[in-house]
Every structure is written in structure tokens, then in C-alpha cells.
Simulated assay, not measured.
Amino acid sequence: MAMRVATFHTTSSLLDRTLTTQARLANIQKQESTGLVSTDYAGLGSEAGSVISLSASISTAESNISAAETVISRSDTIASVLQDITDLLTNARSSVSATSTSDELQDLQTSAAEYLEDLELLLNTQYQGRYIFSGSLTDTEPVDTSSYEATDLTTVNTDYYQGDSYTQVIRLDSGTQVEYGVTATLEGIEEAMRALSYLANSITLTTSELDDVDDLLVDAQDAIITATSAAGTVSSRLETYIENEEDYIAQMEDLATDATSIDIAAAAVEATTYETMLEASYSALSTIINLSLVDYL
């Protein structure tokens, strides 16, 4: 391209403006195709910090939801097992009520041993590879009755327990904690173990003791029903928490969308304007470049 000194500055200035217009047109066309102000944080300018903060808040909320969903599943499993134990105790009480003679005691003791074995199996339930009644010792079976024997109906005896006293908790982002774990030392569970062990193993058992056995089973059942209800309350509370977190995520996503999205219609108008400007620049450049000395004679 040949040009005279007199037109050099004008040409350079016009070329710079043309290149700038080209860049702006390319950018607005990219925004049109993606619907986004920018595909990276660098292109968001002053909004980048806010968008990063919003993204972090959304990620945190999603993690909170995932943790809460896991706890709900565990809590529901605990509630289900406790309900099975309640049903087992109902059957045990029926067996006790059906025993009225000394001759029937042996059958009752056989049934009690079976109930005790079933209770042990229930308390050794695993969820996702974790024993749910062992406290923090989730890789240890909580109950072992091989050397456990209740010698009376009044003395608390947790010799069957192999776990620890830790109660599982979930920490919510608000700073509050929700306890959801149950160990096999729960009062109702210990009472059930004691009543069934005494029934199964006592060599001096008489029919006169059966009312006391039934009373202990009733106490055990009541305590376990209360624990079942508590587990359900935990699940309900966390379900509400999840709903609130989901609403929060939706709000943060709306804010992020507002900060990162463009008005497609407005972008189209802007692109048309840049195209018009660019065509005018091309025309002006062509005119200047093709000027010759003859034009000034």
C-alpha cells in the first residue's frame, strides 16, 4: 500500500479505529452466540469478583445438600431398624402373655433366645458399609451377645456393646449441629436386651416374674418408639433445610445469570451498529488508499 506523507496520520488513525471496531464486533458476535458477557472471569471486569463469590456460595450450598441427603438416608435407615425392633418386642410380649404355666416356660425361653439373636442382627445393621449403632466405630459390630447374660431384670447391663458413646452429628452452614445417631446403648435397646437375655438364660425363671418381664419390655418399646420418632424428626428437619438451600441456590444462580448473561436483542442491535461502522471505515480507508497526485491537480 503506497500513501503520501500528508495522508499517513489520517490513514493510521482510521485503521486503528477500524481494528477496534472489528474487535468489538467480534466480541459482541461471540456474546450473541454464547448468551454470555464472557466465557471467562477476565472478561467480566468489575463483576468478576461477585460472580466468583456467587459460584463459591452455590458450591457450598450444593455440598450442604449432599451431606444432608446422606444423613437423611442414614436417619431413615435407623428409624426403619428401630421400627423392626419395636415389632420384634411386640411379638416377644405376645409370647410372654401366652405363657401361663411352668410347662410353657421352656418354649418361652427358646423363643426369647431367638428374639435375642434377631435383635442382635438388627443392631448390627450396616448402611453403606457403616455400622449405624456403633457410635464413631462404624467399622465395628456394635453388638456381641456371645458372652452377654443378664442375671436380673433391674441391673443395667451393656456388656454386649462393642462401640463407643459418640453420637453422630451433622454441622449445618448456619453453625448449628443436628444429632442423628443412635448407639446400641440406647435405654430402650438396653432394656430389650436385658429382658430377652434374662428370659432366655435364667435357670430360676418362674411365671411370677413374667409380669416384670412384660413391664420391662413395655418400657423398652416406649423408649424405642420415642427414638424412632426422633429419627423421623431429624429427617423432616433436614428436608426443610434442603428445600431452603435449593431456594438459596436458585437465587444465587439468578444473580449469577444477571451478571454474566446479555440481552440478545440488544446485542443484535449493537452488532448491526458495529457492522455499519465497519463498512463505513472500510469505504473511507479504500478512498484514502486510492488517492493519487492527480486528485490534487
Rank of each mutant, 00 (worst) to 15 (best):
Q83K: 15
L116R: 10
T228E: 10
S174I: 00
D118C: 00
Y241H: 10
D258M: 07
S73K: 14
S261Q: 14
L108Y: 04
I262L: 05
L278K: 11
D103L: 12
N290K: 11
A113C: 03
A42E: 07
D219Q: 12
L278G: 05
E141K: 15
L186R: 14
E253L: 06
D107K: 15
L122P: 04
A284C: 01
L293S: 10
A267S: 15
N201G: 11
L205Y: 06
A61G: 05
E279V: 01
S229R: 13
N91Q: 15
E120W: 02
L14R: 14
V71R: 11
S55H: 11
R93T: 14
A112D: 03
V294Q: 14
D173M: 03
L122I: 01
V182W: 01
A265P: 03
T60G: 08
E190H: 08
A98G: 12
A268R: 13
T21M: 06
K30T: 12
E104M: 13
S111K: 15
L205P: 06
D214P: 05
T272E: 08
S202G: 09
L217I: 02
S73V: 05
L291W: 02
Y241L: 02
S46I: 10
L137R: 15
A113V: 02
V71D: 06
T60N: 14
N290A: 08
T176R: 11
T226H: 03
D164R: 08
V213D: 04
Y166W: 00
S208I: 06
G232Y: 04
V81T: 11
I264A: 12
L216N: 12
I242R: 05
Y282C: 01
L210M: 09
E141F: 04
L291G: 01
I225G: 03
L121D: 13
Q168F: 00
S59C: 00
Q168M: 06
D295W: 00
V143S: 09
Y115W: 03
Y127N: 13
A68M: 09
T183N: 11
Q29V: 02
D76K: 15
Y180F: 15
S95Y: 09
A256F: 00
T226L: 08
L44A: 14
A220C: 07
T260W: 04
S146C: 04
D40L: 05
